[in-house]
């Protein structure tokens, strides 16, 4: 759905109604921004200003100390390391997992639309259904198999788990996208003697940018925000950001440092927010155009 063919359905032109519409829309702008505002404002306050004061107020004294503490010195579990090592863990898990699930998703989509074979419908159906399983159903055997493979508590193990949870969606996205790509071009290239990978690289890949953006954002957001797999399968030294943030916020010992919690929450949200701000427009457009419809 591109802007040029879109059409709105404006029905009313009375000034009163329009003013009311704008007022309601503005109220909801505040509603969606409020929690973000609360997090940002309070992450710059000294702790006593939060406890004795008002969560809605701007800081009277601005301080960067909560940020420094959340990043490099706050107590997470037993270690006073801050969130930094966990942030790095998340990057080390998510970057390869996103890369692998996007590359294989693209190749799978290519095969399932342009090199069809007997039984490909069943393969696709199984991959599609795998997108929606509640992950609780795989937790017990996954723990056992990762242990058996010697991957329990390792980055590789988490990458494998994320790949298995993400490949269904990647395949779905690319399959739907490539289904609309003219098969005649592929046939012609085949007659000219182009190989399987040449056709993919020279013909399909150059026009795949929109769906690559959708897939990368989808996988990045889901994997960065994952908590269940991180909580179940990470070990000492491989714990991801979301699990560390939850440990920070819900640790029962000591004083509750709300300002540090808020700074930590923003740190955990920053990568996905950045991706969303930079490329979110393309994501929504691509998702709505192709991926939601079967």
């Amino acid at each position: 759905m591109t802007r040029s063919i879109s059409q709105d359905n404006a029905v009313s032109s009375s000034r009163m109604t329009r003013a009311l519409i704008y007022a309601v829309l503005l109220v909801f702008v505040f509603y969606y921004l409020l929690p973000l505002y609360v997090m940002v404002a309070n992450s710059f306050k000294p702790l006593d200003e939060i406890r004795g004061g008002d969560l809605m107020a701007l800081p009277k004294v601005w301080t960067l100390a909560p940020w420094a503490s959340a990043w490099s010195s706050a107590q997470i579990g037993v270690e006073p390391t801050g969130l930094k090592p966990y942030f790095i863990n998340s990057i080390l898990i998510v970057v390869p997992a996103v890369f692998l699930s996007t590359v294989f998703g693209a190749l799978n989509g290519y095969v399932l639309t342009k090199w069809r074979f007997k039984g490909d419908g069943i393969v696709f159906g199984m991959m599609l259904l795998s997108c929606f399983i509640p992950f609780q159903i795989v937790l017990i055997p996954a723990a056992k198999v990762l242990g058996f493979l010697g991957l329990a508590g390792t980055l590789k193990g988490l990458i494998l788990i994320h790949f298995s949870a993400g490949i269904g969606f990647s395949t779905l996205f690319f399959r739907n996208y490539y289904a609309a790509f003219p098969t005649e071009l592929i046939k012609a290239a085949q007659i000219d003697g182009a190989s399987f990978f040449q056709i993919f690289r020279r013909i399909l890949l150059p026009s795949s940018a929109p769906i690559i953006v959708v897939t990368v954002i989808w996988q990045f957001t889901n994997q960065w925000n994952d908590f269940l797999f991180g909580a179940s399968f990470s070990g000492f030294g491989t714990t991801p950001m979301t699990v560390a943030l939850n440990n920070l916020v819900n640790s029962s010992t000591g004083v509750k440092e709300y300002n540090v919690h808020f700074a930590g929450a923003i740190l955990a949200a920053l990568p996905t927010l950045l991706v969303y701000i930079v490329a979110g427009k393309y994501f929504v457009r691509g998702l709505m155009a192709g991926a939601v419809k079967g």
């Binding site: 359905n9 309070n42 925000n225 979301t242 808020f262 927010l273």
Partner: peptide
């Protein structure tokens, strides 16, 4: 309804979906 500033409002309504439920939970918890 042909809203001026739609391009400004829409991303504000949408950004929470980019956040982890752990972040959302932390914000709303306090």
């Amino acid at each position: 309804q042909k809203i001026r500033g739609e391009g400004f409002i829409r991303p504000i309504y949408l950004y929470p979906m980019a956040l982890s439920f752990i972040v959302t939970g932390t914000a709303w918890k306090w």
